[in-house]
């Protein structure tokens, strides 16, 4: 390679360019995680200098912590509900828009826009809509003869959170739409000519073709949904980190529980242990989804995958 001492690719240049990311990864991602692990072995309370090592006692306690376990189960249930709904919903919207319609751009904008609104504003909007006495949701339901529902308190708050999350599925819709338009029209037409019904064309041609994108949606959906924390925090009556204790029981997801242990009980060591256990849980779920992908994700061989 380095004839005459010259090389087209001097190593140090690669490291120079990639350096910012390496430093960032080491100091802003790896270091906090390792630091959290160290803290999880102590009884640190966030401020006092009088902390000591207590080994794995936090982890042992966590295994008997019923509130944390309930929160974990709730979080998994929430994810199992929201991810399929939002993947199916975004695919459905995309299929609706993937046909000859007037003003497709307008409809697409309407559905996509909510996904870029900051969560703080989204929460404010939905609190106005779901307000028991003044919100329009109950007013509309009232016309149908349904008595006012207290959306933001137990046990309905859980569904309020689901609605709020699903409102932002437009980002997924745009991805699905792009995927659908990448399916060669000839394939679908050939199947139609051969007498396949519209459903079986979708099931046996379209869906396999877009399955890599659906897979991407599912995996990112699972990871981000498991970690949801600010949505329940902001949807609560008093939205702030210091009042995290007032988040309704039904929306007390795992990360909310972690925040409570940090900022309500000042148990930084215990909270850090919770973070690490959750880190492993998320990893396990990611691997699970990835394993399952062999059964339902269809890849075409693509030779220039490693450019």
């Amino acid at each position: 390679m380095a004839r005459n001492g010259w090389s087209r690719y001097p190593r140090r240049h690669f490291y120079l360019f990639v350096g910012p990311w390496v430093a960032g990864f080491l100091f802003l991602t790896a270091a906090p995680l390792l630091y959290a692990f160290a803290v999880s072995l102590t009884n640190f309370d966030g401020s006092s200098p009088r902390w000591r090592w207590i080994g794995f006692r936090n982890y042992v306690e966590l295994f008997g912590d019923q509130a944390a376990q309930a929160a974990l189960v709730r979080t998994i249930g929430y994810t199992a509900m929201v991810v399929p709904l939002s993947v199916a919903g975004s695919l459905g919207l995309a299929m609706l828009l993937n046909r000859r319609l007037k003003a497709v751009g307008f409809w697409r904008t309407v559905f996509f826009l909510p996904s870029i609104v900051p969560m703080v504003a989204t929460a404010i909007m939905w609190k106005l809509i779901l307000n028991r006495d003044s919100g329009i949701m109950n007013a509309v339901l009232g016309v149908a003869g349904i008595r006012p529902i207290s959306w933001l308190v137990d046990p309905v708050a859980f569904y309020a959170l689901v609605i709020l999350t699903l409102w932002g599925l437009g980002g997924g819709m745009v991805i699905m739409l792009a995927a659908l338009q990448g399916v060669p029209a000839e394939l679908e037409e050939a199947a139609r000519v051969d007498g396949a019904s519209r459903w079986s064309v979708f099931r046996h041609v379209t869906l396999p073709m877009i399955s890599p994108v659906v897979y991407f949606q599912v995996i990112t959906g699972v990871i981000t949904t498991l970690q949801i924390v600010i949505q329940p925090l902001l949807l609560a009556e008093t939205s702030s980190i210091s009042t995290v204790g007032q988040v309704p029981q039904s929306t007390r997801l795992y990360m909310v529980q972690v925040y409570q242990d940090f900022f309500l009980h000042n148990r930084f060591g215990y909270g850090s242990a919770m973070l690490w256990v959750f880190f492993l849980v998320i990893l396990a779920f990611t691997l699970l989804v990835q394993r399952s992908s062999r059964l339902w994700v269809h890849y075409e061989v693509d030779s220039d995958a490693d450019r």
């Binding site: 991805i175 792009a178 995927a179 890599p212 991407f216 890849y299 075409e300 693509d302 995958a305």
Partner: peptide, 13 residues
């Protein structure tokens, strides 16, 4: 795995 294979439908778009 995502680093190795590439969703062809999306790549095309």
């Amino acid at each position: 795995d995502i680093g190795k294979t590439r969703p062809i439908a999306a790549a095309r778009t």
